[in-house]
């Protein structure tokens, strides 16, 4: 899974959000390291909708402008959970080895 995809799914994990909300949320989650560009974001959203990992939750009109809210589907939650577990296993392995070789003090 690409990092952008992982971050978008994570942003949607605790509730529906619209495009701009996802961008600011991902920026916050990643500590300002990942800044999604709108082109990339909407291409990814379209792809994720087609893959049925996310779905359009609702549409709202704010100041005359349409805002589409996206939410995770059950399949999307499952995929994100599996990917997070995989990354966690890798991170744990790395930290354990660093610890064993004296690279990390606990």
């Amino acid at each position: 899974m690409q990092e952008a995809t992982f971050m978008i799914l994570t942003a949607l994990a605790n509730g529906a959000q619209h495009g701009y909300g996802i961008i600011t949320d991902v920026q916050e989650i990643s500590g300002d390291r990942v800044r999604l560009r709108p082109g990339t974001l909407y291409t990814a959203l379209d792809r994720l909708c087609a893959d049925e990992l996310i779905a359009v939750d609702r549409e709202e009109v704010v100041e005359g402008r349409l805002r589409r809210y996206y939410r995770l589907t059950p399949a999307g939650s499952e995929r994100l959970g599996a990917e997070a577990a995989r990354l966690q296993a890798h991170a744990t392995a790395a930290l354990t080895r660093l610890n064993l070789s004296g690279g990390m003090a606990t």
Partner: peptide, 23 residues
């Protein structure tokens, strides 16, 4: 330039990669 490149590549990518449901 980065934002322009992002829009152009994303747009072309969408044209080349068909959007088809998993079903």
């Amino acid at each position: 330039p980065a934002a322009s490149a992002d829009l152009i590549t994303s747009g072309l990518w969408m044209r080349l990669r068909p959007r088809l449901p998993r079903s």
